[in-house]
């Protein structure tokens, strides 16, 4: 495998890791506050649909993004109402949200667009395009020289290849997702809000007796979870692909949960875990590279299943003991 191929695989890993990372951080905020959320998948799916649909109708991807975030927040609040206010079972509420989103998105898509449960393809301003960082080789250089971009990159030096292919050229959402990692770390471990958020996930009674609202903190966490899931979903339909198709979240919400456990609820480790899953997904797209490496023909289906196999392995606890936030999954009932 040459250097350029490696760069291309890594580039693809970053793109595929982005929705996982956003969803994983979303789950991190929620679970650190003691609210388990297996509805990440459903929220991403709803956001993917509404951002694509609204972006198509308005022609503006930014309006689409807002719509996606809005739809995800609505589902978050539903989860919050069920599990915080009414002290219901968080797993069941999450499952319900997944079913709701899976059915509702296709139903509304069919009713609005009559294209078999998908949105029309997004073009131009309806999509997030890649951002050319300064001095990177991009489509403009290709236009200026009249040659294809891939040719230009293939001829460039390794540093230029690394910069142009791996670092430059992603959509804004990829960069936002990456910035969310240090931001999450900072919020959790360096701010008052973070201290309280972590405390409410460990021992809500301690927070309550300190005179802080347990309910307020948990709703805040669930809202942040909604925003991040919304961005993740919008990324799927308006950046990674150009439009919504049925079930396009494809289990990413669950893979993000596995990554969260793998990362033991820590932001930087969440990044590494998501990049690992992203790499596995990228390799599935490049079976030629895998065959070059292992020198055996590997069926694509096997490669496709690898992220899910890793998920099962992680959830079965083969990667060491992961201790979730102690009050996770338990509704808070005030008692002496």
């Amino acid at each position: 495998m040459d250097f350029l191929t490696l760069i291309q695989v890594l580039d693809s890993s970053v793109r595929l890791a982005t929705p996982l990372l956003l969803a994983c951080l979303a789950g991190l905020f929620s679970e650190r506050a003691g609210i388990f959320d297996i509805g990440l998948e459903g929220k991403m799916l709803a956001a993917a649909f509404f951002s694509a649909a609204i972006a198509y109708m308005t022609g503006s991807v930014w309006v689409g993004l807002l719509a996606g975030i809005g739809s995800s927040i609505v589902l978050s609040l539903l989860h919050g109402a069920a599990s915080i206010t009414f002290r219901g079972n968080q797993l069941i509420s999450g499952v319900a949200i997944n079913f709701l989103a899976a059915g509702l998105t296709v139903l509304i898509a069919q009713s609005w667009f009559n294209q078999g449960g998908r949105t029309p393809s997004l073009m131009g301003g309806g999509r997030f395009e890649g951002i050319e960082l300064p001095f990177a080789l991009g489509p403009k250089d290709a236009e200026a020289t009249g040659r294809s971009l891939s040719e230009l990159i293939a001829e460039a030096g390794p540093i230029s290849q690394l910069y142009s292919e791996l670092i430059s050229g992603h959509s804004i959402l990829v960069y936002i997702a990456l910035l969310c990692v240090p931001a999450t770390w900072y919020i959790l471990f360096r701010t008052r809000f973070g201290l309280r958020l972590r405390a409410v996930g460990e021992n809500p009674a301690a927070v309550d007796t300190a005179g802080i609202s347990v309910i307020g903190l948990r709703y805040a966490a669930v809202m942040i979870c909604g925003v991040l899931c919304g961005i993740a979903g919008a990324y799927l339909s308006t950046a990674l692909q150009a439009g919504f198709v049925k079930d396009m979240a494809a289990g990413r919400g669950f893979i993000a949960l596995a990554a969260l456990i793998f990362a033991k609820w820590r932001p930087w480790h969440a990044l590494y875990a998501c990049l690992l899953f992203g790499l596995l997904q990228a390799l599935a797209l490049r079976s030629d590279v895998v065959e070059g490496l292992v020198r055996v023909e590997v069926p694509v289906q096997v490669l496709d299943s690898l992220p899910y196999v890793l998920t099962v392995v992680i959830l079965a606890g083969f990667v060491g003991k992961a201790i979730p936030p102690r009050a996770g999954g338990e509704p808070y009932v005030k008692e002496r």
Binding site: G194, R196, R198, A199, A206, D208, A210, G211, I212, R336
Partner: peptide
Amino acid sequence: FQHFKLVENFSVLENVVLGAEDGALLK
């Protein structure tokens, strides 16, 4: 309280500060 209201995996200092912080930043 009879059953302590402490966050087990926090330090003593963090437990004391929780809810009585001076500003948005912890330091």
